[in-house]
Design a protein around this nucleic acid. Structure first.
Length: 294
DNA sequence: TTGCAGGGGTCAA
DNA sequence: TTGACCCCTGCA
C-alpha cells in the first residue's frame, strides 16, 4: 500500500517500508536521544514504544519493523519515526558551514524519534547527572516493576509505567530502582501530573518559551531537562539542549574560547533556527564519536 | 583490592 | 554562586 509517500507492505511478521531515506538505526538509536532500544546479536534493534514491542531491521533503503501492523503503523510508528519530515530539507537548512556539513554527513541517518511525552519527561529527569547505560537500566527496572508486561518472541518486555502507575508508588518503592535523589523528583512530578496540576497536553499549544517555563515548574526539571523533553517528545524542534558537554563542544568547534550557556543558546537560535534541536543531534553525535570536547 | 573524584543536572540557601 | 544530592564508574 501507499501511505503518505511511502511504499509499505505488511506480511505476517510486520511492516516492510521501501524507499526509506535518511535513516540509520545506529545513528538513530545510539545518538543518545532514547533509552529503550537494545541492539540484538544480529544487528537489529528491539524497542518498546507506547506499550508496543517492535524489532527494527534495516538494509539500505528498506526498513523492516517486525511486530508492527497496519493500524499501529499509522497511529504510532509513522509519527514516532518522524516519517512525515523531509530530512534533506533539514540538512540543507542546518548545513551552514564546514563543521555542520561534516556533522550532517557523519550522522546522516539520524532521525528524531517522537517519544511519548510522559516517558520523555521522566526519562530526562532521570538523566540529570547521570550516564546513558545507567539511565537505561533505571528505566528498564522501573518498567519491569511498575509497567505492563508485554511479550514478543518468547521474551518478556515491559511498557513504560503510566502516570497513575508511578503516582501510586511510595518513595521507598521508587528507590528500589536505585535512581537516588531523582526518585523524589519522579514522585513529585508524577503526583502533579496525576492530580492535573500539570497538564502535559498543554505543551504543544504553547510557544517554545512558554512551554519551557511551564515545564520548569516541575520538580527535577531545569533548562536542560525541559529542552530535552520538548525535543525528544517531538513537541518542539527549536530548542538546543545545552549541558556542560554540549557547551564544551561548541566552545571547541565554534567559539575557540569559553562561552556561556546563554551564548550557546543564542548562537543556535541565530544559526539553526527552527531546526536547532536536530542540528544539535548531528553535532552531538559527531562530537561524541570523534571524542571532541572530552 | 581499596579509596576517591567526578559525572550530559537541579535545588535551595 | 555554590554545595549537596544517590549511585556508579574509572583510575591511581
Amino acid at each position: 500500500m501507499e501511505f503518505r509517500g511511502y511504499d509499505i507492505n505488511f506480511d505476517e511478521y510486520g511492516a516492510i517500508i521501501e524507499g526509506m531515506r535518511d535513516f540509520d538505526p545506529i545513528h538513530t538509536f545510539e545518538c543518545g536521544q532514547c533509552f529503550r532500544w537494545h541492539r540484538e546479536a544480529d544487528g537489529s534493534y528491539t524497542g518498546v514504544v507506547r506499550g508496543r514491542v517492535a524489532n527494527a531491521v534495516y538494509t539500505p533503503g528498506k526498513l523492516i519493523l517486525n511486530n508492527v501492523f497496519a493500524d499501529d503503523f499509522e497511529q504510532i510508528w509513522f509519527d514516532y519515526f518522524d516519517l512525515g519530515r523531509d530530512y534533506s530539507e533539514v540538512k540543507k537548512a542546518v548545513g551552514i558551514d564546514d563543521v555542520m556539513l561534516k556533522a550532517v554527513e557523519f550522522g546522516s541517518g539520524i532521525r528524531l524519534l517522537k517519544q511519548e511525552p510522559w516517558e520523555a519527561l521522566i526519562s530526562f529527569i532521570l538523566s540529570s547527572n547521570n550516564r546513558i547505560p545507567r539511565i537505561m537500566k533505571i528505566i528498564e527496572d522501573l518498567a519491569r516493576m511498575y509497567g505492563r508486561e508485554l511479550g514478543y518472541r518468547g521474551r518478556k518486555y515491559y511498557a513504560f509505567p503510566d502516570v497513575n502507575g508511578l503516582a501510586a508508588c511510595s518513595l521507598e518503592q521508587l528507590e528500589s530502582c536505585r535512581a537516588g535523589y531523582r526518585c523524589g523528583y519522579i514522585q513529585r512530578t508524577a503526583a502533579d501530573v496525576a492530580a492535573g496540576a500539570f497538564e502535559l497536553q498543554k505543551l504543544a499549544m504553547l510557544d517554545t518559551a512558554d512551554a519551557r517555563s511551564y515545564l520548569l515548574q516541575l520538580h527535577g526539571v531545569g533548562c536542560k531537562v525541559a529542552d530535552c523533553m520538548l525535543l525528544y517528545s517531538g513537541t518542539k524542534q527549536d530548542v538546543f539542549p545545552t549541558d556542560v558537554w554540549v557547551r564544551r563542544v561548541m566552545e571547541e568547534l565554534y567559539f575557540k574560547r569559553e562561552a556561556s550557556f546563554k551564548k550557546v543558546q543564542e548562537f543556535a537560535a541565530e544559526n539553526f533556527g527552527k531546526y536547532s534541536g536536530i542540528a544539535q543531534q548531528y553535532l552531538f553525535y559527531y562530537a561524541r564519536e570523534h571524542k571532541i570536547g572530552v
